[in-house]
Amino acid sequence: MAARMTPEAGIKAGKPRGPYRKTREVRRRILDAALEVFAESGYRSGSLREIASRVEMSEAGLLHHFPSKISLLEAVLEHRDERASRIVDHEAHDGMQMLRGLLDLARLNTKEPGVVELYCVLAAEATAPDHPAHDFFVARYERLRDQIGRALERVRADGYLRDGVDPARAAARMIAIWDGLQVQWLFDRSSIDMADELVDYLSRILTRPVEP
């Protein structure tokens, strides 16, 4: 995750400069390389040495920015979710707006297969209770069910949710469908359009189109 600007760093508002900017750029390069390696090999098999090699630095140099493999994994996952949060407004008063944001995220994911691969590989590995990302994914799924469920509650309050649809159960199903679509898409990217399939699912639980 990119370092935060602080008054102590002597960085004024605006573009970062000097050592701070260089450090931020190095951290970003490390996170991008880690995403690639973890996506290709999984967290357990992906090595710090390989990540360091891809950014042309020593393993000791990498550990200067991220003191352990676990801290690097946490930063990669946070980096991914931070980018997603800039696309999806989970607290939008308009529930339909939040759902449209999710569709935009699904479309973006098709342009970043490494991100999708990382998520799928780590989510599968992290089902093991001793995996470093286990708690992260448990909390993440709980948070997503809550966020999508609350959006559907707002949709229902506006009169756009079909009768008999339970927001909490519909949220869990939407996540399950999305995860399954991602796996199928990774095997054959020409066989399926993830956003279109999610639109189809939403059309079955909403009384109006989610998109104009």
Results as ranks from 00 to 15, higher is better:
Phe187Ser: 13
Val138Gln: 14
Ile175Met: 11
Arg143Ser: 14
Met1Leu: 08
Arg208Val: 15
Arg189Phe: 06
Met5Glu: 08
Arg208Ala: 14
Lys69Trp: 04
Asp166Val: 10
Gly10Trp: 00
Ile30Val: 14
Arg173Thr: 15
Arg154Phe: 08
Asp32Arg: 03
Gly114Cys: 04
Pro129His: 05
Asp166Ala: 11
Leu35Asp: 00
His93Asn: 12
Ala170Cys: 06
Pro209Gly: 08
Asp179Gln: 13
Val26Asn: 04
Ala172Cys: 05
Met174Ser: 15
Asp166Ile: 03
Asp32Cys: 02
Ala139Gly: 11
Glu36Ser: 10
Ala151Met: 10
Ser71Val: 11
Thr6Met: 10
Asp193Thr: 12
Glu74Phe: 02
Tyr20Lys: 00
Glu74Thr: 09
Gly159Pro: 03
Pro129Gln: 04
Asp146Ser: 14
Asp166His: 07
Gly159Tyr: 02
Arg86Ile: 01
Val76Leu: 04
Tyr20Ala: 09
Arg44Gly: 01
Glu82Val: 01
Leu103Trp: 03
Ser203Val: 02
Met98Val: 07
Ile11Met: 13
Phe66His: 03
Arg80Pro: 01
Pro113Cys: 08
Ile148Met: 10
Arg208Thr: 14
Pro212Leu: 11
Met98Asn: 04
Arg21Gly: 01
Asp32Leu: 13
Leu118Phe: 14
Leu63His: 08
Asp179Ala: 13
Gln97Val: 13
Leu31Val: 15
Ala39Cys: 08
Ala171Val: 06
Ala106Trp: 02
Pro19Cys: 00
Tyr201Trp: 09
Ser68Ile: 05
Asp163Gln: 13
Gly42Thr: 05
Arg145Leu: 08
Arg27Ile: 04
Glu50Asn: 08
Glu112Leu: 15
Met1Pro: 03
Val183Trp: 12
Glu59Leu: 02
Gly149Trp: 06
Ala126Asp: 04
Ile87Gln: 03
Arg27His: 03
Lys12Asp: 11
Ala133Asn: 05
